[in-house]
Amino acid sequence: MSEGSSSAPLLANPSFPSRRPVADTPFTRLARNRLAMFGLVVILLVTLLALLAPVLLITDPNEINTAARLKPPGTPGNLFGTDQLGRDILSRLIWGARVSLLVAVVAATIALTIGTLIGVIAGYFGGLVDNIFMRLIDVLLAFPYVLLAIALVSALGPGLVNAMIAIAIVNISFYARNVRSAVLSIKSMEYIEAARASGASHARIIFLDILPNIIAPILVLVSLNIGWMVTETAGLSFVGLGAQPPTSDWGSMLADGRRFILVAPHAIIMPGIAIVLLVFAFNSLGDGLRDALDPRLRKGGR
């Protein structure tokens, strides 16, 4: 090798065969995480059931059968038993999953969009804009979480759509704050300064340099957040502000079954398990995603 001219090829390193990692991408790391995979399978399964509810060969969730009230699980024809009106609990759970998932996903999308917009603008531009947005968010946060949702639904009137709006509004602050801090850490990177020094516009920097770098953390936020939203939807329905009868919904199933807790515990245990399982699934997936995407674990870093 000639003496070290700086333009000498830098790569050829014959006796150091560059060792390609076996495959260490966020996907492979996620795939190795059993808990996250369990969460993913549960979510996919519940989603599939919810989507297929109309074509599944199950009883009508609203069909009242006073002769078969509060049948225990395992009753032929009513695998999970029946409720106080003799409606099939399994069927109501599957139809209820539609409500839970729909509300959670739509509310999360709304909250994510508005929250990200606020977070990006506040974090990127800083200064007065940041101050105003963040004080507004602080005000939103000052209300107890559930109370705010209840107050909003009371004002808008009970019903699923209003519950959805309330849950979305309540969660905007969560996205705004987290996105803002992610933007702040990216904004201080020198490659943002380099883009500015090249004359790039703010929009170009936000869309090409900042957003692609915060998508991973946002994904984690969404997954964790949807889990909470499932609980919140159930909570609002439980207090009668969410799904209205006769719509089957996990929260209202809990509320209905509560009066028969001693005679027919399965009427609340079944929806209870459903809620816990789905929330747990979203949380495990969220945790798994966070671990998989953590840049500190990424190869070739510092």
């Binding site: 090798m1 070290g4 830098l10 050829a12 390193n13 014959p14 006796s15 065969p17």
Partner: peptide, 25 residues
């Protein structure tokens, strides 16, 4: 300046002979 050409080996690279051979003048 007369720098050492090439890059230091990354940890995990395996050298068969002298580990400095690829950069040695």
């Amino acid at each position: 300046l007369r720098p050492i050409p090439g890059q230091p080996p990354r940890p995990g690279d395996i050298a068969t002979g002298c580990s400095f051979a690829p950069r040695c003048h």
